Simulated scan of single mutants.
Amino acid sequence: MGIETITIETDARLTTVDVTDQIASVVPDDLESGTVTAFVAHTTAGLLVQENEPRLREDIEDFLRDLVPDEGHAHDRLDGNADSHLRAAMIGPDVTIPVENGDLVLGTWQSILFVECDGPRTRSLTVALTPHAK
């Protein structure tokens, strides 16, 4: 057990990608009890737990666009992506999920979504496994 890295390719400036299966694939089948923490080491992307339904994912993207205008921020004078930083700041860079008998313990409709705010890009997602003592 330890740390794994997952690579994610995005194809739009603001988009969501279901990464549940990729994260689950690094959890050993024999891990009886523990946690998995996924972390995005980027300041313009984030992770959230939500339903992986295409219309809801579109709603999430629209919601972020509505909350944070694309332009008009001080940081834009540096590199034109302040909106991406602000959107990612609202989402957060990590999620922690319980593991039981080698499976992620997620609710029926829950998935882990990677939220790209400054794409398209190739991103790294760090996944850390922590076994719990018996």
Rank of each mutant, 00 (worst) to 15 (best):
C117E: 15
D79H: 01
G34P: 15
R57A: 04
I60F: 04
L113S: 03
T43F: 05
K134L: 14
V40Y: 04
L86H: 08
V26R: 12
Q50S: 15
F39H: 10
K134D: 14
S25H: 13
V36P: 13
P131M: 08
A128F: 04
E4K: 09
S25W: 09
E58D: 15
D79S: 00
G34Q: 11
K134S: 11
A45M: 00
I3Y: 11
A38N: 10
L31A: 07
E100H: 05
T122A: 09
G107E: 14
H73M: 01
R57S: 08
V27R: 05
E61F: 03
T16Y: 08
D59R: 00
P98Y: 02
R13N: 08
A41C: 03
G107L: 13
P120C: 05
L14F: 14
R87Q: 01
L78E: 12
E9R: 09
E4S: 10
M1V: 11
Q110Y: 07
L14D: 14
A133C: 01
V99S: 05
C117L: 05
V68L: 02
T44G: 03
H132Q: 05
H42E: 12
D18C: 01
F114A: 06
T20V: 03
A128G: 05
L48H: 10
L48P: 15
L104D: 08
E116R: 11
H42Y: 07
T7E: 08
D70Y: 10
V115L: 09
L56P: 04
I6N: 02
H73Q: 09
D29P: 12
D29Y: 06
V19I: 11
L64Q: 07
T44D: 07
Q110P: 00
H75R: 02
R65Y: 15
D21G: 07
I91S: 03
